[in-house]
């Protein structure tokens, strides 16, 4: 047991009474509460454990930077099209303010670039939950399309980490069209005989599910990830009934036959690296 073991909650009952202010010597900002089991977790422990709850295994959402650090070899990521940024193209009411807020975090809801994974040159796209819940706007679609076109020209495999609330309604029909545009780019990459691996992370829904998220040659998902076309709230409204507990989790869609494997975060990079190798991509240097 490590040094902080004494503050690790042992069960849920203990966790719920274990408020940070009751524990001396540890400032509040060093704690985070697990939304699944309510355990109070030390941020230092969390970082060491790849932001997976040490208590129940819940996978916390990663930032783009954290996701790239998880998958790409150290310092190997080079971003493409970083300057491309969302605009209020339809003059949609209230969208400017939302964009302004979102742009404090990033320029768009996806970060695309090139890196090495296990020494293998790969195009990597990581969606950003902190930018308007990873919604797909025209620039999101454009960046993903460019990433696939670049990979097709360069003969590289593509790994996309999805997290999305769906299409971005403030960009109307132009946002919907990105589903077709990205799918076309994926198809061309596929027709060129190149490998595309999708990593579904929580939540992956709507127009992203109904386009490039479901188009990978190999589709992996993190545990307990929401994978849906219509989200649970929409379905509950239509059906007027409560949905089963595990409905639309990655384990559920695995059982239904729509993804290849559920992979825990600690095995994600090695799994991707092995798959890349098995498809004949060679390590550089």
């Amino acid at each position: 047991m490590d040094f902080f073991a004494f503050v690790k909650p042992k069960n849920e009952l203990e966790a719920s009474s274990n408020k940070p202010e009751n524990v001396p010597f540890v400032p509040e900002e060093m704690w985070v509460k697990c939304p699944k089991c309510n355990a109070m977790l030390l941020t230092t422990d969390m970082e060491e454990n790849l932001h997976v709850c040490t208590h129940c295994g819940h996978h916390f959402r990663l930032s783009v930077r954290q996701r790239i650090e998880l998958l790409a070899d150290r310092d190997s990521f080079r971003e493409h099209d970083a300057e491309l940024t969302a605009k209020n193209i339809l003059d949609f009411p209230g969208y400017d303010a939302k964009l302004e807020k979102a742009k404090r975090n990033a320029n768009e809801s996806v970060c695309c670039g090139e890196c090495r994974i296990g020494g293998i040159k790969t195009v990597l796209c990581v969606m950003n939950a902190e930018f308007m819940m990873g919604s797909m706007g025209t620039v999101t679609g454009e960046k993903i399309t460019r990433a696939f076109e670049y990979a097709t020209d360069a003969g590289l495999p593509v790994v996309v980490c999805t997290v999305s609330g769906g299409a971005r309604m403030q960009e109307g029909i132009l946002s919907l069209m990105q589903m077709a545009k990205t799918s076309g780019a994926v198809k061309r990459h596929s027709d060129a005989g190149l490998l595309y691996i999708t990593i579904l992370t929580d939540p992956t829904t709507g127009g992203v599910t109904a386009s490039f998220a479901m188009e990978g040659d190999i589709i992996l998902a993190e545990p307990d990830t929401l994978v849906a076309f219509a989200g649970p709230r929409v379905i509950e409204q239509t059906m007027r009934q409560k949905l089963p507990r595990d409905f639309q989790t990655s384990e559920f869609v695995l059982q239904k036959g729509f993804i290849d494997a559920v992979v825990s975060r600690d095995k994600l990079k090695s799994t991707v690296a092995r798959l890349l190798k098995m498809h004949g991509y060679a390590e550089v240097e």
Binding site: S211, A213, E215, G257
Partner: peptide, 23 residues
């Protein structure tokens, strides 16, 4: 948007059409 539709891969079915229709 229903249980059966989700269970049978509504998102996957649409995605496949987008890809296949393009070519």
């Amino acid at each position: 948007p229903g249980i059966g539709a989700e269970e049978r891969g509504q998102g996957q079915a649409i995605a496949e059409n987008l890809m296949e229709m393009m070519t």
